[in-house]
Every structure is written in structure tokens, then in C-alpha cells.
Simulated assay, not measured.
Amino acid sequence: MAAAEKPFRSVLYVPASNPKALAKAGSLACDAVILDLEDAVAPGDKQAARANLKDWFGRRPVGSPTAIVRVNALATEWGADDLALARTLEPDGILLPKVDTPRDLLEAGDLLDEEAVPERVKLWAMVETPRGLLNLGAIAELGRDPAARLAGLVAGTNDLVKETGVLATPDRRYLVPWLMQIVLSARAGGLVALDGVMNDFRAAALFELECAEAAAMGFDGKTLIHPAQIGPANAAFSPSETAVAEARRIVEAFALAENAGKGVIVLDDRMVERLHLAQAQRLLARAAAAPATDRSEKDP
């Protein structure tokens, strides 16, 4: 089995204009942080936020979560300076907001290549505009081209609500078709798919339900706005103990000498195909990447 990839179950937005929040970012139990220069930073605070970010990377703790910098759109007055800073900081990823077309990503990638930024610095795309949704297939295809650096898609649900006028109901019924489109496109492009934020971080039960539904939709994780959301997100997007045990039984059954080369076997009076073996192997890889202390004890 291939080495397990790093999980992105819990991805916390941290305003770069908030030194106190930044100071905590390196020690949180989330899988990644999005150090935000865009929506969470007022226009008058952009310069100070960049200075804070430079200081944070200069003292970034060993073992800190994956660090992704969200820049302002390149078309704005702040975008070029944000990207120039991100190039020098060499974070794990750079999140581009309001991606409308593949060209938005290709232009940013060209700028990174010009400055010889290491290939490990990946690009992430916010899906938060009608044009972005309409062009999502072409955007996701960039994931198949290593030179494009694209690593994942992030649902910008608040902006989608604003731009389309759909009603933001607690069950997200009007957003679900677009969320499923994001997951489908991510799978086609071999990308990570992250669900959007839930604004009311005090509604713990509703947040757990939203995480469970996002996991059922196929998302790899969820973007967060408060540290209190980290634990529930980690649990929801980690395989349950029951699922892990079942996956191991499938892998072990196919490894038996009498099943060598078989495309279909019988396990507990049910048919199990090699596609189920592939699913089991992927689940075990996810489980290996997720700390055991974070894994949910409940069935999905």
C-alpha cells in the first residue's frame, strides 16, 4: 500500500491581522491552518497582516499544522503584494480566492515558477463564484498536471450564497448540488476537497451534523472558523473503528492464498469485489494518516 497522505480533516482560518490567534496557530490539533490575508483582514490592516505573517513564518514551530496562505485575488490592489510575500515565505500552500477560470491558477503558477519557488508549494482554489462553478471541470483538470501545482478545491459557501441569492437553510439543501459538484470535480482531478465553513461555532450539534453530512458527500475535510470546531471535524472525517476493522478483514481475505488472482470473493455471505478491496485500502491509508486519538469511535 502507498504511504498515507497527510489528512485535511480540519482546516482552520486564522486572520493574519490577529497576532494572538497567529501565536496559537502552531500548536493547534487541526490538520492545517489557512493564514488569511483576504476576507478576515480589513483594507487598513493588510500591511500589518503581512508583517505578522512574515514574523510567524520566521518562528514557525516544528511540527505545526500544514500552513496555507490565503492571498487576495491578483486582480485586487493587494493581490500582487500578497503573492510576492507568499513566494518568499514558501508556505505549504497558497489559496487563491474567487477562482473563475483555469487561467487564474495558471497565472499564479507562472509567477511562482519565475521566482523558482519549490514545487512543494501548492496552489489551492476557492470555489465561490458562479463562473467558478461553471468552469469547475476545467479548473479541476489542472490537478492532473503536476506543473500546475493545484492541490485542492475549497468551497466558499458564504460567497456562493451572496453571489447567487440562494437561501442559506440549516440543512444547506440549496447548496448541496454545488457541493457535490465540487467533490465530483475534485475526484476527477485527483484533488483534495474541503467543505465550507459553518458560521455559528456555538451550535455544536448542528456543526457535528454538517460535518457528518459533508463526510458522507465525500469531502476530505472541513474549513473552520473557531478552534472549538477542530475536535468534531477530526472525528467526523476519520474512519470509525468499525469501518477500519471491516476494511482490514477485506484486505486480509484477498491476501489469502486461495483468493490469489480472484476478482470476486465471498466474505460473510456477501460478494466482495476488487473495487471493494481498493476502497478498503484507501480507508486504511486514511486511518493510518489520522492520529488514533482523533478517530471517532462511532460508525459513520
Score class of each variant (00 low, 15 high):
117 V>Q: 15
17 S>L: 06
87 R>S: 11
154 V>S: 10
296 S>L: 05
83 L>V: 03
21 A>F: 13
219 F>H: 02
66 T>H: 06
97 P>A: 12
174 Y>C: 13
56 W>T: 01
117 V>S: 09
146 P>C: 06
94 I>T: 02
195 D>R: 07
73 A>K: 10
17 S>P: 00
106 L>W: 04
4 A>D: 01
71 V>R: 06
14 V>N: 01
299 D>K: 10
236 A>G: 03
136 L>Q: 07
46 K>C: 05
109 G>T: 05
256 L>P: 01
50 R>T: 01
178 W>P: 12
258 E>I: 00
192 V>Y: 07
112 L>V: 12
293 T>S: 15
77 E>P: 08
249 R>I: 11
232 P>S: 03
77 E>Q: 12
231 G>F: 07
189 G>L: 13
209 L>A: 15
219 F>K: 03
114 E>M: 15
89 L>I: 03
60 R>G: 00
119 E>D: 15
5 E>A: 10
149 R>E: 02
20 K>L: 12
218 G>M: 01
20 K>E: 11
60 R>I: 00
85 L>N: 02
151 A>D: 05
195 D>S: 14
299 D>F: 15
160 L>W: 10
115 E>P: 14
156 G>Y: 06
283 L>N: 07
153 L>G: 06
87 R>N: 00
17 S>H: 05
249 R>H: 10
212 A>H: 12
5 E>R: 09
165 G>Y: 01
153 L>S: 05
251 V>S: 07
156 G>C: 10
53 L>G: 02
157 T>M: 08
172 R>I: 06
51 A>M: 07
34 I>F: 03
97 P>N: 09
222 K>P: 06
197 V>I: 12
299 D>H: 12
243 A>S: 14
38 E>C: 08
70 R>M: 02
79 G>Q: 04
7 P>C: 00
66 T>W: 04
89 L>S: 04
277 L>C: 01
27 S>A: 15
252 E>K: 09
178 W>G: 13
120 R>F: 15
43 P>R: 04
144 R>H: 09
81 D>M: 11
256 L>N: 00
32 A>F: 11
264 V>Q: 00
69 V>L: 12
56 W>Y: 07
39 D>K: 06
242 T>V: 12
221 G>Q: 05
182 I>C: 09
158 N>G: 14
268 D>H: 11
203 A>S: 15
141 E>P: 02
111 L>C: 11
284 L>N: 04
128 E>I: 15
8 F>Q: 02
212 A>M: 02
70 R>F: 01
292 A>W: 01
127 V>M: 10
225 I>H: 03
159 D>N: 08
201 F>V: 15
240 S>T: 04
108 A>S: 12
152 G>Y: 07
79 G>W: 01
172 R>V: 10
100 D>W: 08
251 V>F: 06
82 D>N: 05
8 F>T: 04
92 D>V: 12
102 P>C: 08
39 D>Q: 09
169 T>R: 14
51 A>L: 10
25 A>Q: 04
273 E>P: 00
276 H>C: 01
255 A>M: 09
146 P>W: 10
159 D>E: 07
184 L>C: 14
